[in-house]
């Protein structure tokens, strides 16, 4: 058994282009997840029962359905219903965003609950409107608690985004597969792809660690 470095070097540029696509999908999916997740968290912390019920139903659904099922459902299933086709890139983003929304909802909820209720009370005492208190007082403080878990969610979405080739996105693994079928070098190309992806996820996790430390530095400590 010999490791064919030549084929790796020749395929690497195309694979890296595919990698860019994976990262783009993960980033856009994360954006969708953040927006939906914030909405779910706010509904879940609402005063009334109905929004809270909607939030828990959303969480149960989004956490229960595997990402792969979502991808197929959005890419192959929805067009049957609506009659309009959806691109594989958009379908991947939607599927990742839906799955991520449950995890981000949890992150936001935990972060918001971690803020001292005295802050909300202080805002009330100052006569700030509820929305101002939320956006200007509670959320900025909650953000600190949300960084590390958000990075974890992003890493999860990035790992999830590696399956997009199943709906035909020409990502790194798609190219690795295509070339390895032609040249019969699956071991070389899949190993390369796997190593690159591990390096990226570890790098993102480290980055999150650094950001968290920096945010912590500016923190006012209470006795």
């Amino acid at each position: 058994m010999s490791f064919d470095f030549d084929i790796v070097l020749r395929t690497l540029p195309a694979m890296l282009q595919g990698l860019v696509l994976t990262v783009e999908i993960a980033v856009w999916g994360f954006v969708v997840a953040v927006v939906l997740g914030l909405l779910v968290a706010v509904l879940g912390l609402a005063r009334y029962r109905t929004p809270r019920w909607i939030a828990s139903a959303w969480l149960a659904l989004m956490r229960g359905v595997p990402l792969l099922v979502f991808m197929y459902w959005v890419y192959y299933g929805l067009p049957q219903l609506t009659g309009a086709t959806i691109g594989s890139f958009a379908a991947a983003v939607v599927a990742l965003g839906l799955t991520g929304s449950a995890y981000m909802g949890e992150v936001f909820r935990a972060g918001l609950l971690a803020v001292d209720p005295g802050q909300q009370e202080a805002a009330d005492a100052l006569g700030l409107p509820r929305s101002t208190a939320f956006w200007r007082v509670v959320l900025p403080q909650a953000a600190r608690f949300m960084v590390a878990p958000s990075v974890n969610v992003f890493v999860g979405l990035l790992k999830g985004a590696t399956i997009v080739s199943v709906i035909g996105v020409a990502d790194m693994l798609y190219i690795a597969k295509k070339v390895s079928v032609q040249t019969f070098t699956p071991f070389e190309l899949y190993t390369t792809a796997g190593l690159i992806l591990v390096v990226i996820t570890v790098a993102v996790a480290l980055l999150g660690f650094v950001v968290e430390r920096r945010l912590d530095r500016g923190r006012v400590r209470h006795a």
């Binding site: 792969l68 197929y72 459902w73 192959y76």
Partner: peptide, 29 residues
């Protein structure tokens, strides 16, 4: 998932089978 894929292809009803697959997973979870 594999079974849903093959049934969806046989019957041209992807929406139905992927929905059922999703529902079963939600129930399991």
């Amino acid at each position: 998932m594999y079974t849903s894929q093959s049934l969806a292809q046989q019957t041209y009803r992807p929406f139905e089978f992927y929905t059922v697959a999703g529902v079963l997973f939600v129930i399991g979870v």
